[in-house]
Design a binder for these strands. Sequence first.
DNA 1: GATTATATATCAGTATATCCGATATATTAT
DNA 2: ATAATATATCGGATATACTGATATATAATC
Lengths: 293, 293
Amino acid sequence: MKFTLRQLQVFIATAHYKNLSRAAESLAMSQSAASGALQDLEQRYSTQLFDRVGKRLQLNGLGHSLRPLAESLMSQADEFERALQQQDIAGKLNVGATLTIGNYVVIPIIAQFMRDYPAIDIRLHVANTAHIAEQVINYELDIGLIEGEYNHQDLSIVPWQSDELVVFCTPEHPYAAFDVLTDEQLVAANWILRESGSGTRQAFDRAMHGLLNELKTHLELEHTEAIKRAVEAGLGIGCLSKITLADAFSRGSLVPLEVPDRDMERQFYFITHKKKYWSVGLQRWIECCQGTT
Amino acid sequence: MKFTLRQLQVFIATAHYKNLSRAAESLAMSQSAASGALQDLEQRYSTQLFDRVGKRLQLNGLGHSLRPLAESLMSQADEFERALQQQDIAGKLNVGATLTIGNYVVIPIIAQFMRDYPAIDIRLHVANTAHIAEQVINYELDIGLIEGEYNHQDLSIVPWQSDELVVFCTPEHPYAAFDVLTDEQLVAANWILRESGSGTRQAFDRAMHGLLNELKTHLELEHTEAIKRAVEAGLGIGCLSKITLADAFSRGSLVPLEVPDRDMERQFYFITHKKKYWSVGLQRWIECCQGTT
DNA sequence: GATTATATATCAGTATATCCGATATATTAT
DNA sequence: ATAATATATCGGATATACTGATATATAATC
């Protein structure tokens, strides 16, 4: 074994920051030490892991292929150290979730998880699907919980739970009197929707396939709560995940509308980096998610 | 990170040999260096990994729980190093197999595997099921291919392919004239069988459930070839895996006997250590096994 | 119970590795 | 051109890892 864990840390940090000085800082060591460690690693195996273009350190092909292994190795080393310190299951867990999942689905799961594993420091990052996927690919998040489809060669995508969109309006709205809505009525309505690019909107667009160009998008908002408020104010009809509407329906401030012609099903997914080591904490999180479903 | 890969190596080797001097020797270092490394690891985390009973180093509870992690870590470190050396898929693979599997099933798979991955140094160890399981648990084998059932908390057991036992005799034997054999005829026969404890015998005993005490075991032999020779010599009838008999049947020196009342099916299994890191080589081997099936 | 063989622990000395601070050098931005 | 920002390199201090010799403890043998 001609390399050290320290060299691995420097390699990982440098790959992450693409900046040796900041990598060194993050490891609480001098820039010169980091430079030395990296060169030592390369020289020992007479190879290169980074392309030095100007003053930038950019992972080259070999470096790129080694990164997943290195990350996995370090995760396990962390876990080994924690086990040595007899802290059992602990560590940090960075979870990413989209707005809808983060605000409605994940909160009770986090509550459960924190009760079961108080030693694990869990952190929730809410962002859109693309941003979460990017962070998972770059090892900045341990796991992402997303709504839309998103494919990438480095991602492992696992279906999690199914969800349903619901069209809704106020009890006073004329549509509230109908048992079901026809396509013509959908076209005639004033829609209040999530913005393009959001998972919810993506699913809505798919469900309304064929009608899309005729629909009147009266208002686009970036938050589900704002959409509910706007619909309650009588500005039009909306379409959101049923999980975000449960409260409003039971209070009676909003009512669901049946749209039998349209498939409103969609899927939530787990995404993880394919080559990431599944720490015990991560395993427990996934179990917890699946248990609460 | 307060530990080094070298310390991990010493820890693993010592756990393996239960003898510091031999561990040191296997790592090409002095006994004093090994002793120091181990103590350093323990002192850094103010804990113990071994019980020093007399001059024996015996893994204690914590050490025992840490071993799988350490082994996995080192396997990955090896793989990382190989990747650094750009040797792609390489390394050693220690495969264990029982006599029947080792002599008949595995040979063509090894041939295929060696063609596909010439860089991997594969080694086959033939032994009985219990011995193979033991070696897998102790990290001495990467994978075991066994016939019988064998359960252990540290083992992951995956069904692989099914096999069938066949009762057989010479064409001249009076039974060869019958279409099927009844239980009475089975009891009346002179049996030539593998020894008790072998996977083949275990499966035979299960198939003959209820008749076992009445059967006449004329001869017990430890090798399938010897059993075929004995049956060919007219000493009685035998029962072996059909895969070991294909040649003899096609040559006509032996003939199969139908025993419709008895379930002669059995299963071959993979066993691996549950917490072992699946190296790329090991993954390829399993793919190869499943592909050739 | 004494003796021998076998193991582990410890110590001193040495070689090696790691790190920091300072400095040289190269690149990008202004 | 100049300033700001990064990486590479060098010397020296410090820490670490190793060997060989030795002390100590245990198991085996007579």
